[in-house]
Design a protein around this nucleic acid. Structure first.
Length: 1047
RNA sequence: GCCGAAGUGGCGGAAUUGGCAGACGCACGCGACUCAAAAUCGCGCGGGGUAACACCCAUGUGGGUUCGACUCCCACCUUCGGCACCA
């Protein structure tokens, strides 16, 4: 027998040889097309995770595929090596961040090499190397000198736990996304990058092949909204600028709200409101983001005592402050239009502020309520019937829903039947109050007062209502007709009344007409102008940390800020630092670092903040081009050839962080001329330079996440002393899982769901969980584990969830490689999951890949001619292979080429491997036939190894060499697909009757339509199902080999 | 609440984008080999139904479009991800 497949014997050997031969070294070659493939660089946390393998090895397979297809492929690797964990290790374990980081990098380099990936290690970039962060600092300096970096005071997210600020993108639900610790709002001087300058350009994804969900997330994150700035004025002449997306609702602005932090708050607050306002402002400042949102929907706020004048109708409206208005968006002040904005509506209702509708409903929903006997006399409903006005009667309650054009007729009927001292109202599609002697429209602050006075006088039950809307809100049936936010026709809006909300223009496009019309008018009046606002805020890059790239500026004694001269870059991090238990940055206390001189020689202090690590990873794709280059961030000769990144792979969690930042970075670099030299060289070589410089990565694909495996907990029988719900067990035994569950006070049979030390939670199968505490002298008996057992050997249930050390569900790739070999681990990761989706790990499933590779090994390692083994079953020497067999073999091989190729193109690694397994099955069957003496057999095996080389590079190389094909399989070209060879000679014609399959017949592939139809109509089964009826229609789908007969 | 993705055998997943649902695997069952087990090999494997066919049901649920729907449209349910007073 031939030797067995032992990955350990071949994998390290080839890894060493490939590296020694610089097999994967990528060099500029203008005669070949380039392909820059890149996976997101890892953070050196200590050990490579199975997630890294899942991200990187399929990407490697695809890079290898592109290389075999003739591309000059660059597939680099590096480390995102600055960041907080290193500093936390320093504080808690007294290891220097640099030592910790480089130790981890060394370990991870070895682990990365065990993947057998085609990384070009000569391009490795490590962001905490001074040679790297020199250029990170250089970029800061360029940004600073070109007004893309600025120092500003802003309300920032401060983490008291980490003693640093965080970017908006790093704060989720008011908590730090990494530690889950709460974040508070704090006013601080910080460094910002002007990413908002590029907001509009970042919304443009033309020519980017990125997943739609990522584009949507970025679009939402940027949050562009079109509207207008309008300037209101206080009674005392202070202007208050507001932003609104609905200038068409201006006439409905019945109050204003300022953010508690708004600059004008102190100035306008009147004496008697002072105490309340100060109190509220202070409370708002103290609240963390969580508290602010945890309060839920209930609005809070206080009146300032001041009034503003609505510039469109001169209405005098109160000014409030409330924390639902944020200082960070727009101008930190709003005009409130409670009739058409949900938040303003809630606020107005709670605080009794007037609500005046100024936009007509699009759905026409109109309602009116009255009471028979109490408010209207008999005969009312028959009058409604006569006028065909829709209504429903429930006891004495009458619910009327008139059409818009019936409103006047309805009002007249109401008046006729109304009892003295009563009224009713019409809401929604029209706003009318019908009294015996008058019909009063509800259309302005003035009419609000008049209606309210009258109703209060008539009806004691509404005497305490502060507004008309509050009164109407008391009728539950009215509630959903009181507020809407549709783009309807303007009403109650002076000369604009009647302006339609939406108009279709000459191109058939729907335009928000009223909005535009009012915006124009505002501009002409000089009280406002059309504006665009963004949710996106400038990128805060300061971190009050040690382990990051220093911000290369100094503060002079004169109070100015100077960038460090280029020839003094990088500002290096001092290594002799003391870490504080408080978590404060040691740079604050390092005199040698702090004290320096300004350009004129006068004393100056260094900036002690360092840069957000997303800064380092925003440009690493450029550093990979030439990690040792010291004239510029990258060598323009390399950039001209390799840029941009063709395929970028990584996790979707970076949608609005890294991926937005790196796009911004590239655009900023372009505008600063950083790409000029490279672009010129590209142009000289006949490439369009624009391709290089607008976007960093052309194609983006996200892999999913590998989750922990589900595990059943041990089923135990526990007996002992019961104490209420709890059982103190002195005997615990692991038993067969199929044993029926028992839940008696002193005896339990069930599955261990959780275990904390010696306390178990046991699922007793009757919907209950009991607590079992194992007493100190208890006997623990686990039959499967010989010897004396203890509590720690009991297995508890594991649910499917993210892997983490604390949950005990981590899969260690090193162990898997030791057990199965890298090729198997690669193959399994690619085969078992939809790569873009991920899923829970399954430790059994890997057997499929183990068998695949050992079958392939058997198929090749076995010499065919004189094998005494399986092959001897066939009388091989005597018989010639038939032409049919050869054709079949070649057909299967070429069909596989197509399937593997198509799958790799679309990142469908699982179907690519399925195709390879399938072809392996065919080859195994064919191995039993004389076809093994044909050239076609040799060709098949040669192609097989080339097809599998991207997935399982080591075994492919080994078998390739053993077959005398030379070195290396990874220098071979991808097999050519021969369509003719792949074509089927016979096909199975599927015959349906009324869409249901009734027969299948084998026919020649080139059968004519007439012939196929004829055969179909002759089929016995088909005739039976047609039950004598004539076909009404026969649909023939030639390319699918299908006929549908409709009767 | 808003935005996005997904829902297919016991499990992971296929299905050329409207044309034979369940490829390729895992697990499982039966058989062979073995003293035995593992490994390996052969057969089976969505549910119902039948002696066996036939046939019926089946891609989260309910409708619709179509000769034909896992695929398209409408409504709903569930799970996961993102955002969350953004004026």
């Amino acid at each position: 027998m031939a030797e067995k497949y032992v990955p350990k014997k071949i994998e390290p050997k080839w890894q060493k040889r490939w590296e020694n031969d610089r097999l994967y070294r990528s060099e500029v070659d203008w005669n070949r097309p380039k392909h820059y493939a890149m996976t997101m660089l890892p953070y050196p946390s200590g050990d490579l995770h199975i997630g890294h393998w899942f991200a990187m090895t399929p990407s490697d397979a695809r890079a290898r595929f592109m290389r075999m297809r003739g591309y000059n492929v660059m597939f680099p690797i590096g480390f995102d090596a600055f960041g907080l964990p290193a500093e936390q290790a320093a504080i808690s374990r007294n290891i220097h961040p640099k030592t910790w980081t480089y130790n981890n990098i060394t370990r991870m380099q070895r682990q990365l090499r065990s993947m057998g990936a085609m990384f070009d290690w000569e391009r490795e970039a490590i962001s905490c190397d001074p040679g790297y962060y020199r250029w990170t600092e250089w970029f800061f300096k360029q940004f600073f000198e070109n007004d893309l970096a600025y120092r500003g005071e802003a309300l920032v997210n401060w983490s008291p736990t980490l003693q640093t600020v965080l970017a908006n993108e790093q704060v989720i639900d008011g908590k730090d996304e990494r530690t889950g610790q709460p974040v508070i709002q704090k006013l601080m001087e910080q460094w910002f990058f002007r990413i908002t300058k590029y907001a509009d350009e970042l919304l443009n994804f033309d020519n980017l092949n990125w997943p739609e969900p990522i584009r949507i997330m970025q679009t939402n994150w940027i949050g562009r909204s079109e509207g207008a700035h309008v300037t209101f004025t206080t009674e005392h002449g202070d202007p208050i600028k507001v932003f609104t997306t609905r200038p068409d609702t201006l006439w409905g602005a019945t109050f204003m709200v300022l953010a508690p932090e708004h600059a004008l708050v102190g100035k306008i607050t009147t004496g008697e409101q002072c105490a309340g306002v100060e109190n509220y402002v202070e409370q708002a400042a103290r609240a963390t983001e969580i508290e602010r949102t945890a309060e839920g929907r209930d609005k809070t706020g206080v009146f300032t005592g001041a009034y503003a004048i609505n510039p469109v109708n001169q209405a005098r409206i109160p000014i409030w402050i409330a924390d639902y208005v944020m200082i960070t968006y727009g101008s930190g002040a709003i005009m409130a239009v409670p009739a058409h904005d949900q938040r303003d509506f809630d606020f107005a209702l709670k605080f009794g502020l007037p609500i005046i509708p100024v936009i007509a409903r699009n759905d026409g929903l109109t309602r009116s309520y009255t009471r028979l006997g109490a408010w209207v006399t008999d005969g009312f409903t028959s009058a409604l019937d006569k006028a065909a006005i829709p209504h429903q009667v429930d006891g004495s309650d009458v619910y009327v829903t008139p059409d818009i054009d019936q409103v006047d007729a309805y009002a007249a009927i109401v008046q006729q039947y109304l009892k003295p001292g009563a009224w009713t109202e019409i809401v929604g599609g029209a706003w009318l109050f019908v009294f015996k002697d008058a019909v009063m429209p509800f259309d302005s602050l003035g009419s609000e007062q008049r209606i309210l006075e009258r109703c209060r006088a008539l009806e004691p039950a509404v005497a305490d209502k502060r507004t008309v809307m509050e009164m109407l809100y008391g009728v539950e049936w009215y509630r959903d007709a009181l507020y809407h936010d549709a783009y309807g026709t303007m009403i109650n809006s002076g000369e604009f009344t009647g302006t339609p909300g939406i108009k279709t223009d000459d191109n058939g496009e729907q335009q928000r007409y009223a909005k535009q019309a009012v915006s124009h008018w505002l501009e002409k009046q000089g009280i406002g102008q059309a504006t665009v606002n963004y949710r996106l805020r400038d990128w805060l890059i300061s971190r009050q940390r040690y382990w990051g790239a220093p911000i290369p500026v100094v503060f002079t004694d004169g109070g100015t800020i100077e960038a460090v001269p280029e020839d003094q870059l990088p500002v290096e991090l001092p290594e002799d630092v003391q870490f504080m238990p408080t978590g404060q940055s040691p740079l604050l206390f390092h005199d040698g670092f702090l004290n320096t001189t300004a350009s004129d020689g006068s004393p100056a202090k260094r900036e002690t903040d360092t840069m957000d690590t997303f800064m380092c990873s925003s440009w690493y794709q450029y550093r990979y081009l030439s990690p040792d280059y010291d004239q510029a961030p990258f060598d323009p000769d390399e950039g001209a050839y390799w840029l941009p990144v063709d395929v970028y792979t990584g996790g979707a969690e970076h949608a609005t962080l890294h991926l937005l930042y790196t796009r911004f970075f590239t655009k900023a670099m372009r505008d600063l001329g950083v790409f000029d030299d490279a672009a010129a060289i590209a142009g000289k070589n006949g490439r369009n330079p624009d391709e290089l410089i607008n976007e960093p990565m052309t194609v983006l694909r996200n892999q999913g996440q590998i989750l922990g495996e589900e595990r059943r907990g041990d089923v135990i029988e526990a007996a002992g002393r019961a104490d209420g719900e709890k059982l103190f067990a002195d005997h615990v035994k692991v038993i067969d899982p199929s044993t029926p569950r028992v839940n008696e006070p002193d005896r339990i049979v069930g599955e261990i769901m959780r275990r904390t030390e010696d306390v178990l939670r046991v699922d007793t199968g009757d919907g209950n969980q009991r607590t079992v505490e194992i007493t100190s002298g208890a006997v623990v008996d686990i039959p499967a584990i010989p010897g004396k057992n203890d509590v720690n050997q009991l297995k508890h249930h594991l649910e499917i969830q993210r892997m983490s050390k604390s949950k005990g569900n981590v899969v260690d790739p090193d162990e898997l490689v030791a057990q199965y070999g890298a090729d198997t681990v690669r193959g399994y990761l690619m085969f078992a999951f939809d790569w873009q989706k991920g899923g829970p790990w399954d430790s059994q499933g890997i057997q499929g890949v183990v068998r695949w590779l050992s079958d392939v090994w058997g198929l090749f390692a076995e010499p065919t001619a004189d094998a005494p083994g399986e092959a001897s079953a066939v009388e091989t020497t005597a018989v010639e292979a038939t032409g049919d067999d050869i054709a079949t073999l070649r057909r299967k091989v070429h069909q596989a080429i197509k399937r593997v190729t198509d799958s790799l193109e679309t990142f469908s690694f699982n179907t690519a491997i399925a195709a390879l397994m399938s072809l392996k099955n065919t080859l195994q069957t064919m191995q039993q036939t004389p076809v093994i003496h044909s050239d076609a057999w040799d060709e098949a095996r040669n192609i097989y190894l080339r097809l599998m080389a991207p997935f399982a590079p080591h075994i492919a190389e080994e078998l390739w060499g053993r077959h005398g094909y030379g070195y290396s399989v990874h220098l071979q070209s991808w097999p050519e697909y021969d369509e003719e060879a792949a074509a089927e000679q016979t096909i199975t014609l599927v015959i349906q009757v009324n869409g249901k399959v009734r027969d299948r017949i084998d026919v020649p592939a080139d059968i004519s339509e007439e012939e196929a139809k004829k055969l179909a109509l002759e089929s016995e089964s088909v005739l039976r199902h047609m039950s004598g009826k004539a076909p009404r229609n026969v649909i023939y789908v030639g390319e699918r080999g299908m006929i549908n007969i409709v009767v």
